[in-house]
Design a binder for these strands. Structure first.
Lengths: 206, 206
DNA sequence: GTCTATAAGAAGATAGAC
DNA sequence: GTCTATCTTCTTATAGAC
């Protein structure tokens, strides 16, 4: 890995914990293992390091969503997978999704960065909303729309159903970002949540 | 209002937008209408201003929760109110709760402050979790427990039911903190959410 | 590309007049 | 209690040697 890449990487770690202003150029340099002035051979100034992080965040997210087929192209095949799932497998899938969001290094760092900078940067506010509200809801609602069409659930608005499925996971995610020691408790709530979600949305009499 | 109170008030406004480090003592002084050195006649240093805000947050929240009866004493009477509600009134109540959280000046400022400082101060992390996760869920689950006992809903775990009721509202609240222009859209989602919540938790055949 | 030395300026805090 | 002037420290950034 080049020094330039290391700088971006270490800066992201620091910014995600303390926010832009409380991270000093010398902190980043230290983390990389060089002195602050050397850093200016790679970036014009501190802001340019932050911008490089943003670029990575944006391109990375675009690639990620494209691969997930959030544009809707893959939902049909995804639904094919889900319709055959048992409740236990469904729960395992929910937990795994939560754990991926929670522990994937770049996901976590970017999410915390967005949390800290959302009120001062409207571009980041928009990115946060898309990444942790609209896109997951879109994806889930398309998926649930297919399951609904397949008769797996009682008739309901798939968008609200997605809200009911996703927002508990979202709330627990932000809880664990803040207090990682609550992860076990969060996982137990997710399991109970999905079990009850399945039950209340199950067709009458099931 | 004393100058000291004005300082705390204006500092809160500024901290909630930009976070502790990006607000300068001179900014606070300006907002109050004095010069920075004058401010040191009222507070020993910048941190002491922040601490005064925290004190206000903590005492204010204690009083607020006590008045709401989050300790459980009032849930019975509250349930008495809710059992007689029509769906429309239930929706109106949900919207009003959301709007109160969203627009009440101190609620909003403190919430944004907690959001910005949660990763650097474990006391604030804990306060955030209590204030926007555990306490609302406790309150709602007690309330829903009474409604469940009254036969208004199908049998379910009231804690998870509270999760299903509250977390969509929480997610929309944080969305609107970030992007206030989405308030109308959020209100519409809350209405649709509560309608569907009532329907899926309704006893079979209702 | 990395270093030491240092400039330039910002921000917190104090001294002392009024 | 508020002000102007000032001190101190911290932080970004540059200069120039290696």
């Amino acid at each position: 890995m080049t020094t330039k890449q290391k700088i971006v990487e270490e800066a992201l770690v620091l910014f995600s914990e303390k926010g832009y202003s409380d991270v000093y150029v010398s902190d980043i340099a230290s983390a990389v293992g060089i002195k602050a002035p050397s850093l200016y051979k790679h970036f014009k100034n501190k802001q340019e390091i932050f911008d490089a992080i943003l670029e990575e965040l944006k391109t990375g997210y675009t690639e990620h969503t494209a691969s997930l087929g959030i544009d809707g192209n893959n939902s049909a095949t995804d639904a094919g997978i889900y319709t055959g799932l048992t409740e236990e497998a469904f729960i395992e899938m929910g937990k795994n999704l939560f754990l991926y969001f929670l522990h994937d290094k770049h996901m976590k760092l970017f999410r915390k960065l967005l949390t800290l900078e959302q009120f001062r940067n409207s571009e980041l506010a928009d990115l946060y909303s898309r990444q942790y509200f609209y896109d997951p809801l879109d994806y889930q609602s398309k998926l649930l729309g297919f399951l609904l069409a397949g008769g797996k659930f009682k008739k309901a608005d798939p968008e609200i159903m997605a809200l009911h499925f996703y927002t508990p996971i979202y709330a627990l995610l932000t809880l664990c970002d803040r207090q990682p020691e609550r992860e076990q408790e969060a996982l137990e709530m997710i399991e109970a949540h999905i079990r009850q979600f399945n039950r209340i949305y199950a067709e009458d009499g099931k």
